[in-house]
Simulated assay, not measured.
Amino acid sequence: MVIRTLIVDDEPHAMAIIKKYAAHIPEIVIAGTCSNAIEAFQIIRQDKIDLVFLDIKMPGLLGTDLVRSLKRPPLVIFTTAYQEYAIEGFDLNAIDYLLKPIPLKRFLQAIDKVMQFLNGANKNSAQAGEEELPPPADQFLYLRVERRLIKVNTRQILWIESIKDYIKVITREKVFQTKQKISITEKLLPMGAFMRVHRSFIIPLSKIEGYHPNHLMVAGNKIPIGRNYKQACARKFDPEAGPADHTR
């Protein structure tokens, strides 16, 4: 696998750090570097770019505005010193969000997300992609709650529930509510560790206590299975049941 990568940052030191880290990853090929979003826009339109390390606060055009201007943006990892941009970045379907100065460990975790996403996309195009993958260590979901950025360990999540344009992230200790679409949240979770079972519910596979064709048990609670998700759930949780059992 070759991942053609563009680095966009107006800080030469930050750009050099990413290039240094990327040298450890054989799959990453640095296709170009630039110091502003306008130049990056031209490169992305003219060249095949799979991944962009994109600073947000740059003169002329913000990195977030660059992503909005592209009809089919490549995978994006935002890199910035400003934590307040995190939610906006994730709303734009960023694969990850790295705060400067970027530790090598966080860089590698972000690349792991890219690899999982690309491998999952290739696998799903050839088959149903039902293989369960363990979540990476220390993976977090970032939520904007009451003007604060909250970091939730994905291994502590019991389920995620959507209410219109809001989501509720339920853990054993707390319930976090934030304005975010569940479809965006689904893309930010560890691939293979969570499953959408209803238009309004996502659950971690490791927390499932029981299966019924109409619901799943999680922490003693019934989580409904949506009509459009019943066959996938039946294949996952009751593969030996016949077709009639899947529609009870």
Rank of each mutant, 00 (worst) to 15 (best):
S35W: 04
K19S: 10
F41L: 14
L54I: 00
A137R: 06
Y85K: 06
L149D: 03
I7Y: 01
I111R: 03
I18D: 14
L66F: 02
Q177L: 10
I49H: 09
E209I: 00
I30G: 08
Y82P: 09
S206A: 10
A81E: 01
E132D: 15
D138M: 02
I56G: 04
E11F: 06
L66K: 08
I111Q: 06
Y82G: 10
P134I: 06
K105M: 09
K20F: 13
I163N: 06
Q109S: 14
M115E: 07
D55N: 02
S200Y: 06
E130H: 13
S35K: 13
V8D: 08
F41Q: 12
F90R: 06
H212W: 15
R144S: 14
P204Y: 09
K151V: 02
E84P: 00
E146Q: 11
A232N: 13
K230I: 09
P101W: 05
V2P: 04
V197W: 01
L66M: 00
I87A: 12
V29E: 15
L61E: 01
Q42N: 11
I160M: 03
F90D: 02
A219P: 07
T178F: 00
K71I: 07
R148Q: 13
S69E: 04
T33C: 15
K48D: 07
G226D: 07
R148I: 05
F117L: 15
G32C: 05
Q127K: 13
D96E: 05
Y142R: 11
E39M: 14
M1S: 11
N122C: 15
V76S: 02
F107Q: 08
K187L: 13
G63T: 00
H215T: 04
A128I: 14
I167K: 04
K151A: 06
S35Q: 14
E146S: 11
I157P: 00
H246R: 12
E209C: 05
Q109W: 07
F53H: 05
A31S: 13
R147F: 08
N36E: 05
I38V: 14
Q180I: 04
E209D: 14
P135S: 10
K236A: 08
P74M: 04
D91H: 13
N153H: 01
A94W: 07
I208V: 15
F117Q: 10
I95V: 14
I208Y: 04
K113P: 11
E146I: 01
T5V: 13
K236I: 06
N124D: 14
I30Q: 12
Q42K: 14
L92C: 05
L70S: 00
M15T: 15
N122W: 12
